[in-house]
């Protein structure tokens, strides 16, 4: 029964493998991912953000709104984890 799930998986895998042939080869400096916004990040990142680590420059400056969302997600995950497991502690009357 569960082995049947192999069939769509194999089909999907074959599709993805075929699609991988259409992607630019790994390490291609002219790939679309490397020519859209990333040249701006690399060439002007240090002088615009003051960070020679370009990843930090992108993370904390160019895309800090994105990072704000991620931080909120992490905070919410911690809150959810505590609430899911913490309800039991409060039922005990202050075991924790």
């Amino acid at each position: 029964m569960f082995r049947l799930s192999l069939v769509p998986l194999v089909v999907l895998g074959a599709l993805l493998m075929t699609a991988a042939g259409g992607l630019p080869p790994v390490g291609d400096p002219e790939s679309p991912a490397a020519t859209h916004v990333s040249p701006r990040y690399i060439s002007r990142g240090p002088e615009e953000t003051g960070a020679t680590n370009l990843v930090t420059g992108v993370l904390a400056d160019y895309r800090s709104y994105d990072t704000l969302g991620e931080t909120a997600v992490i905070c919410a995950a911690g809150l959810a984890c505590w609430l899911i497991l913490g309800a039991r502690w409060r039922e005990d009357g202050g075991a924790q």
Binding site: P46, E47, E48, T49, G50, A51, T56, G57, A60, D61, S64, T67, T71, I74, C75, A77, G78
Partner: peptide, 24 residues
């Protein structure tokens, strides 16, 4: 200067992120 101020601001943000990750 602008790049130094931006670096200081993103430093503050990184510290905030570090505190959040540690706590969570």
């Amino acid at each position: 200067e602008a790049p130094k101020a931006r670096a200081a601001g993103s430093m503050a943000i990184e510290i905030g992120v570090a505190v959040t990750v540690t706590g969570v």
